[in-house]
Design a protein around this nucleic acid. Structure first.
Length: 272
DNA sequence: ACTATTTCCTGGATGC
DNA sequence: TGCATCCAGGAAATAG
């Protein structure tokens, strides 16, 4: 389940492999396709474009495309990939067997292929002139702006953290982990957090994301070249998925509740 | 204008 | 062993 740190790692891995390559042809799979843009539009925007770079924005992977033919490289559209839950981007040789649930294949001038595979179909492909994530970047937002996000919001802080219009890139795992590190219960009303709690949450969120990025960065190759997930989840979760297990700080059993339809894990003693 | 709930989708885990 | 059921999750759609 790729969240911000995983998407960073994947985008970096892809940048290493396909930056500078040219897309020669595009195959888009059977309907219903996980497309946000019409297939013809995606194809037209991608074919014969050079991939100038690959980066992350929110939970999205952004391929910056340029016109390689022009004397001066002209900026083209951007190809946006959202991996959803189970989406993968694979760089491989053309003779590699086509995985089940392959929805897109880009043939590259280097002779390799870039494939999009997504069993659960929550992933999305789109083409857009200039992508702008709806929410703030959790890694660069200031403490003051972070606090402002939650003003007047009656929704649980956990739901607010997951709201991509507020913050782009935070998913279920890192929301739980950040709340644990900040000592704040997930059900607390967002607007009811004290200034100190907001400061701690801001810091905790950045810390947990950066820590995960550091750990993921060490095994970039595993993502893109194989199905390996070694880079993911190296971060030892302190609460996520640990219902009933002892809190690493106080030993109390970790609780699990449903908030906004999502599992939320917390320590009833350490989090207020 | 907000907030809460439901829906999409498949594979893996669980239960009888 | 086999079959049915449940569950995971991001974000859009729908409902309140």
């Amino acid at each position: 389940m790729p969240e911000l740190p995983e998407v960073v790692t994947i985008a970096r891995g892809l940048a290493k492999r396909v930056a500078g390559d040219v897309i020669e042809s595009v195959w888009l799979g059977s309907k219903p396709e996980p497309l946000k843009s019409p297939a013809a539009e995606i194809e037209a925007a991608l074919v014969f474009r050079k991939i100038a770079g690959v980066r992350r924005s929110g939970k999205h992977i952004v391929f910056d495309l340029v016109q390689p033919s022009a004397k001066i490289e002209q900026a083209g559209a951007q190809w946006i990939v959202h991996l959803g839950m189970t989406g993968r981007l694979l760089v491989c040789d053309p003779d590699t067997e086509l995985a089940k649930h392959t929805h897109a294949v880009l043939r590259l001038a280097s002779g390799r292929e870039l494939r999009f595979i997504d069993p659960r179909r929550f992933g999305r492909l789109a083409v857009i002139a200039k992508f702008a994530p709806p929410g703030a970047e959790p890694l660069s937002i200031s403490a003051a702006d972070f606090a402002t996000l939650f003003q007047g919001r009656k929704t649980p802080i956990k739901s607010a953290l997951l709201n991509q219009k507020l913050l782009s890139g935070v998913g279920n795992i890192y929301a739980d982990e950040a709340l644990y590190r900040a000592g704040v219960r997930p059900r607390r009303r967002a607007a009811a957090l004290t200034a100190d709690e907001l400061r701690r949450l801001h810091k905790a969120l950045k810390q947990v994301l950066q820590e995960a990025i550091r750990l993921g960065g060490s095994s970039i190759s595993d993502y893109v070249d194989s199905e390996g997930q070694e880079g993911f989840f190296q971060l030892k979760h302190r609460v996520y998925g640990r219902e009933g297990e002892p809190c690493r700080k106080c030993g109390a059993p970790i609780k699990r509740v449903i908030i906004a339809g999502r599992s939320s894990h917390y320590c009833p003693k350490c989090q207020k």
